[in-house]
Nucleic acid binder design. Structure first.
Lengths: 297, 297
DNA sequence: GTTTGGTATAACTTCCGTTTATAACACTTT
DNA sequence: AAAGTGTTATAAACGGAAGTTATACCAAAC
């Protein structure tokens, strides 16, 4: 199989019409060029050039036949290299962000809009999934960066970047239990009320149970549901009390369709983390996106 | 500038999805492949693959972007090489034959027809010109093989192959000079008749003058003309006697519109030679053509 | 825990490509 | 003619890049 570097020499000699000038262009010596051409001719079993006293000319029965193909091929290599280097110096291409719906809505939406305005050439793909699946996608190179609810332990080949957004869990209720409002309620008192939580394998619910256990209180959820939206509906209609990050319920709290129950002690503060693969390439576009979160890679 | 051989490794690794298997395909060791990929990644400044415990996978932000281009480029090299090797193993492409009109007509026509029937895929270009120009074309790679009237001294970078066709020059006349027919005429006797020859810088005429000088006879041509056809017309109409290879006039001799004058001594026999460039590539098609003349290259 | 199937790293070696120097060659100029 | 100029070709020595061998390492599967 022919050494492809020889074609690079071939091309330059063909274009220059001279070993000497090709050597100058290639920054190697003239004999090196001469031998490369000779070697290529030997390996192909064909004489590619006519040697004249004025230089080298592609021979009709040899070099002319393949020159065009070689030229195209070399150009393709060149294009590939410029594509790569553009990826490293300009914001183009695609970035694929993995996160849950609620994180997209309450944590990322503003940033994504801002980024898109700044770099409209970058296509953004949003992959909505629960945190564990999102990390899988990250490992399988299906997304480039993931945002997950903390605490979350991540694979050694992923890297977790700290707290981006504080999420303050609070108890909420509709107007059915006015006795819980306008005062600070001991958490144990809430045992009497039906509790609505997310599915028990979510980070939110696990964190809640862990916190309650740590202070020796046991609340059992009467209803487990699949989304925060649903929880807000049910709680507003008086089906019980819920636990939700304040940020996710802010609108309804302002409207007065939901109310915050102040408890003693208050629920712990959770946060959202950013996760990147440790050994994946980072395009310029992605790097710019990460910078919006003050993350350097 | 990136060593193009690295792309060959890149391509194979991408296709195999594994350093180990790529190494087998490429008949080199696995560490060699590993190092090549690493080098390519360093030079491009991008990580091209995701390393997993199952092997190597093109990374979306790296290798996937350029894979297609690389594949195309390598394919073009492959095509170039097969074109070359086909040129050496099958009769395709073009052969360009240089000769004068008359040589085409009286020496080559049959052979060219025969060759074309045998290798219809080969395109044949006929370049009609006088012998000296034909040799120039040969040197400038405008034609691949030339046929010239001998004697002819050729450049040292051309090679002359011997006598292909004997051309026997004869004197001819129309019916105006019956006294010259049916007997052998001493050449000196022809002084009395107007002589028609080709232009004086043609091989035919030079040869004729040389021969006549060597036997101490001086005939001066009354008329110099540009083509054998014209000569035959004029001679047939009684404008004088002509000198022409018998082969070129055979048809009219048979018809009885021209007559051969037998002389003592007879004119010398000339011949046609084939000329090839010494250092030009010879395609398979051309080689086959040459074989019809029992010339091996 | 051990095996299996993969990649990465290190050190050594080999060989290929480059360079330097020079020859050979064909025109051009004097 | 002879010397000069601009080519390509060849030879020999050198140096470094690429390959090999051996081994480490790592994750998953058994």
């Amino acid at each position: 199989m022919v050494n492809l570097e020889l074609y690079r020499v071939f091309y330059m000699v063909a274009k220059c019409g001279s070993l000497t000038r090709a050597a100058e262009e290639l920054y190697i010596s003239q004999p090196a060029v001469s031998q490369s051409i000779k070697q290529l001719e030997n390996q192909l079993g064909v004489s590619l050039f006519n040697r004249t006293h004025r230089g080298m000319e592609l021979s009709a029965q040899g070099g002319k036949v393949i020159f065009h193909k070689i030229e195209q091929a070399l150009q393709l290599f060149g294009e590939a290299e410029t594509m790569i280097s553009q990826m490293n110096t300009s914001a183009t291409g695609t970035i694929r962000i993995g996160a849950s719906d609620t994180i997209f809505e309450y944590v990322l939406a503003d940033k994504i809009v801002e980024f898109h305005e700044k770099y409209p050439a970058v296509k953004i793909e949003l992959l909505s999934d629960f945190s564990p699946q999102t990390l899988e996608e990250l490992k399988n190179d299906i997304c480039d960066v993931a945002f997950v609810n903390l605490p979350m332990k991540v694979d050694p080949d992923l890297k977790l970047y700290g707290n981006f957004k504080q999420l303050s869990d609070i108890f909420i209720t509709g107007d059915k239990y006015p006795e819980l409002l306008d005062r600070t309620v001991p958490i144990s008192e809430l045992k009497k009320y039906p509790l609505i939580t997310l599915d028990k394998d979510t980070v939110a619910t696990k964190t809640l149970k862990g916190f309650l256990a740590s202070i020796g209180v046991e609340l059992s959820s009467t209803i487990e549901i699949g989304s925060w939206e649903l929880m807000k509906c049910l709680v507003a209609r008086g089906m019980g009390i819920g636990v939700i990050p304040r940020e996710y319920a802010q609108k309804r709290l302002n409207e007065g369709s939901l109310f915050e129950i102040k408890t003693a002690p208050a629920l712990s503060v959770r946060s959202v983390g950013m996760v990147l693969p440790k050994n994946a390439p980072v395009s310029y576009a992605l790097r710019m996106f990460l910078e919006m979160f003050n993350v350097k890679v």
